[in-house]
Amino acid sequence: MIEKEKLENLFAEIRESLDYHEPDSGHKERFFEKLNAKNTSISDVRGRRIRWIKSLSIAASLALIIALGAYIGNAEPTMEEQVARISPEASNTQFYFANLIEEQVKKLKEEVSPETLKIIDDTLLQLKNLEKDYKELERNLIQGGNSKLILSAMITNFQTRINLLNAVLNQIETIKILKNNSNENTI
């Protein structure tokens, strides 16, 4: 019995000194890599799941496609996150352009009239196609394509959309002036 107590006492005495082993050097780096891999794969899985649901709902509703086409700022947030990881600059640029385009599209929609309906519809369709291209580029970027080329193509895509919107808005201005003028002429 006395012996038994001794053993407990012995361990109480040495408890503080028991952790004398050290992991092999470089263990922090190895852990950091594992941690990184884990955190990345979590957001990947989440992203894939959301994209899948998204694509299903897009297929379900054509109206939603048009809404999404007009509303690129809102589309695919997880894709944006992934792009942001590859190139933060690109995602900042995207944010800036998306806002700009959204504003222009709003302006465009305010101009709807019997005379401009056709050109506006056509513009929205073209924007949608451009956006489809853009999504394709984003996908390529995430899958690890030549990022320099893809990023420059993404910027060109945005610029094309802005140019298109500006051109159409100018044309609408011209149509309005023409209409007013011809109205004046007929009076």
Binding site: D19, H21, E22, P23, F31, L35, N39
Partner: peptide, 19 residues
């Protein structure tokens, strides 16, 4: 999922856990 905080927790506990 703050990676810095996770590393700090690791730094504080790794030795006891390793042993």
């Amino acid at each position: 999922n703050d990676q810095c905080a996770q590393m700090e927790i690791y730094n504080r506990y790794f030795k006891a856990m390793y042993n």
